[in-house]
Amino acid sequence: METLKLSKEELSKKRKADFFTGLLILFISIAMLFESFTFPMTDSYGGVQNVWYVSPALLPILVSSLLILLSLILIKRSITDGGFKQAIEDFPKLTQTIRSEGSRRFFIICCYLIAYVYGVIPYVDFFIGSMVFLLAFILPFYLDRSELFSVSFLPFMVTSTLIGILGYQGMVSSLLADIALLAIMLFITLCSYLKIKGDSELFSKWRISVMTSVLTPLILVPCFKFGLLVPLPTEGLVIKAMEHLAYLVR
């Protein structure tokens, strides 16, 4: 459905990206094809003599060959539409593109997601981890103040990266990680409050952010843990306390 009529400039910009993706897909597909040829084709595997038409390599070879063909077509199209030329012309402006507002925001959002999933979730109590993640993520975006990134994004990133690295090497206890993130929660709450102090509109948004970050895990955790009986990725300080409370109530 090539329904959209693009201007020459827009087209070459789009084809510039296509040129790079075409190359990337070509490279990965060739690697996939080579790897597929290492799968048993006619030799024996697990005591069974193989024949080419039942080989586990059959679909990967078919798929990688088609991907190679299509990526070559994509590269050729991108060269014809001026994408390659645009790529060479724009190469000096690469840092400018990376520093653009959209790229910066994309990079920050990805960092939040990566830090939460790889750094926090495996080592910190799910309640605490989600609460701090929500506060650090909502505050700068909802209040739309760039100065808040320094008091929410940076502390969250540094702590979660440290916890992630130390946790991976087995050098941090769950309790210590929980306490560290609780301290970060306190730090973000206080610092952000000081930054927006005096502005009633921002204060109301700040209050909503703090409430959302506390209420969300407060609702979600009991629902999953006690309602759906799904154990959470890491159960530490708060979830253990909830468990004791639930035991007492029962």
């Binding site: 939460y116 989600s130 929500l134 969300t216 895990p217 979600l220 154990p231 959470l232």
Partner: peptide, 24 residues
């Protein structure tokens, strides 16, 4: 605002993906 409910959706997506097979 989207900037409030989308982070919540992130947490829901994480717990949803994890709950299947309880596998990080």
């Amino acid at each position: 605002p989207a900037t409030v409910f989308l982070p919540i959706v992130t947490v829901l997506s994480v717990i949803g993906s994890y709950a299947l097979g309880l596998n990080i």
